[in-house]
Design a protein around this nucleic acid. Structure first.
Lengths: 164, 164
DNA sequence: ATAGTAACTATGATAATCATAGTGACAAGG
DNA sequence: CCTTGTCACTATGATTATCATAGTTACTAT
């Protein structure tokens, strides 16, 4: 590509978000970070992205203040990537993407009945489906309020990726 | 790029959404469609994307069932692009992106005080800020429930784009 | 001394993107 | 009827991001 148009100066908020989020690699890496995968190799394996792309995007996310790089051991130095508050606040976007896909992107019965990823409201135990507000207790749903459970098919896929 | 990795077969719902939404051009075009811009030239001008990219992405969106192409006149035949139900259901994603940007992507005072884009809950008249649930009446917010009002800065930017 | 692990960097082929220009079908004005 | 204008695109060529693959660094473990 040529240098892509810079959207960071537009006044449109969707444009500004698109500058960062309009990129499949960024979205996949964020997904993994929300899932709790913080190590370079795990992220690379699970996203299926090459190490160079993962490296470039993690640097970008760090420079945007979305991700923080922390050494989890010295000798040899090894790093983990953690979501900052600004990063955690992207949960709504990823959760909305997940909801849309659950409603529209699967063929009938493809996931074996339920959703590809189930979310339970920790506070009241309700399966929230794809709602933005808990259908059980009416509370708005954010990161930390929900417990995700991948379907059997998704679990199998992740295990396969990790073993390659 | 080489042919990008196909995510349409993954079981992860975020991956499936990222297949379509992990693309700045798609996000910008969707933004315009939600804004009510339905004509090719208007979308091209307002997004700043070249006609070839706009053409390619509209075809993609149509083939995904997110957008519908309708002739609005014969002789000469001219087309408009409308969001389908599947397309309108992406509102949550764009709205979440907008919310995140409003909270994190502007320097202090850059928009002249308020948000870059204000949303009013039609049902009760409350300015919803960046909430997913109306702070006035507690109702969940979806496409059609909200009336958007661009800030002066955003309006000026759009006018500038249209005149080029 | 060899093998292994984690986190990367280097290289070259491929293909998506951008800017710019051009096309087809028609309407309106002089 | 001939030029100009509008809308919705398509064509072309240069640029550059992406992918696959291989290599590097800095250690630990056996």
């Amino acid at each position: 590509m040529p240098k892509r148009t810079d959207l960071s100066a537009t006044f449109c908020p969707v444009g500004r978000s698109a500058e960062l989020l309009g990129d499949r690699a960024v979205l996949l890496i964020l997904r993994d970070l929300f899932f709790g995968n913080r190590r370079f190799e795990v992220i690379a394996a699970n996203t299926g992205l090459g190490p160079q792309l993962v490296s470039a995007r993690l640097k970008l996310l760090e420079s945007e203040g979305v991700v923080e790089r922390r050494a989890y051991q010295e000798r040899p130095v090894r790093y983990e990537y953690w979501l900052t508050d600004k990063g955690k606040d992207l949960f709504d976007v990823l959760y909305a993407m997940r909801g849309w896909a659950e409603r529209w992107a699967y063929r009938e019965g493809e996931t074996g009945g339920g959703p590809a990823m189930r979310y339970i409201h920790r506070a009241c135990g309700t399966d929230v489906g794809t709602a933005m507000v808990c259908p059980g207790c009416g509370e708005p749903l954010g990161y930390g309020d929900l417990k995700g459970e991948p379907s059997a098919a998704l679990k199998a896929e992740q295990a396969r990726r990790r073993s390659n």
